[in-house]
């Protein structure tokens, strides 16, 4: 049913640290790698080795330049995937009931055998989190690696989304954002995590952590690295001057 649940037991989601992300795209690759061979239809590519390669991805990394009022511009890498919104507009527009939000953990999923590929859910999503697979004609989206996080065949440390598991910078965190004592909730509270496009009223579960202020604190080691002697004195000074005259 495409009615949204009034309450979900958990609000599983991601917290993405824009301060730490180095824009390496490892999460993009690991996401594609896991999801092309697991849940649902593979993530196809079109013209992969040709002039205009394109393909289905559930996670993409944009890079932005932000110019503060004063000071230097900052480059910020910005990974973007489904935010598993509480008020997910993609679910209610679905005509077939293929799109749904799970009551137990709040994950938004697509039942691909019911999807007619009309694309209306992709239109309804403000964030561009859904992509219609051009080979299968069904809508693909982040599943929060639902086939990893509960998978008892995997070692415990692997029971988290592939993007989180692979991030070499530790910029991605996974947990229950409905539990205010969870690590991710504390992180959001302490770092001032925010929603994307709150004016759209989607109430995203995923949160983003802002980049920390840059170039404000002077490095405490910097004074210790001052040059000790600018000009040589004594015998060395005499030698220096004499050699320069030659």
């Amino acid at each position: 049913m495409t009615n949204l649940p009034t309450h979900t037991d958990k609000k599983l989601g991601l917290v993405i640290d824009l301060d730490t992300c180095v824009g390496c795209h490892a999460c993009v690759v690991s996401c594609k790698g896991w999801n092309t061979e697991n849940y649902g239809a593979p993530l196809s590519d079109q013209n992969a080795y040709g002039k205009d390669p394109s393909g289905t991805f559930l996670n993409r990394v944009h890079s932005y330049e932000v110019q503060p009022e004063t000071g230097a511009a900052q480059t910020i890498h910005f990974p973007k995937s489904c935010l598993h919104c509480e008020d997910a507009p993609c679910v209610t527009v679905c005509p077939t009931g293929a799109s749904y939000k799970r009551v137990e953990d709040g994950i938004v999923l697509v039942n691909e055998s019911d999807c007619i590929g009309c694309g209306l859910c992709a239109w309804a999503c403000p964030y561009g989190a859904r992509e219609l697979d051009q080979a299968e004609g069904v809508m693909k989206k982040c599943t929060l690696c639902v086939d990893r996080i509960y998978n008892e065949n995997l070692p415990e440390e692997d029971r988290q989304p592939a993007c989180v598991r692979t991030c070499p910078a530790g910029a991605r965190h996974f947990g229950d954002l409905g539990d205010e004592n969870s690590d991710v909730s504390i992180l959001v509270k302490e770092r001032g995590g925010f929603d994307l496009m709150p004016e759209q009223g989607t109430k995203p579960v995923n949160k983003y952590l802002p980049p920390r202020p840059k170039d404000e604190q002077i490095d405490i080691l910097a004074p210790l690295l001052e040059p000790i002697a600018a000009e040589p004195t004594g015998f060395l000074g005499w030698l220096d001057k004499t050699l320069e005259k030659l």
């Binding site: 824009l18 824009g23 993009v28 002039k51 205009d52 390669p53 394109s54 393909g55 289905t56 991805f57 993409r60 990394v61 944009h62 890079s63 932005y64 330049e65 932000v66 110019q67 503060p68 009022e69 511009a73 900052q74 480059t75 910020i76 910005f78 973007k80 992709a122 403000p126 964030y127 561009g128 992509e131 219609l132 051009q134 925010f194 929603d195 994307l196 496009m197 709150p198 004016e199 983003y208 802002p210 980049p211």
Partner: peptide, 25 residues
């Protein structure tokens, strides 16, 4: 700025697209 949440820092512009050619979106 609201889409990226970076408006609190300053004026935002795209520096690099996530992919080299057009995708479905």
């Amino acid at each position: 700025e609201t889409a990226t949440g970076l408006g609190t820092i300053g004026k935002t512009r795209m520096f690099e697209a996530p992919h080299s050619s057009k995708n479905y979106l």
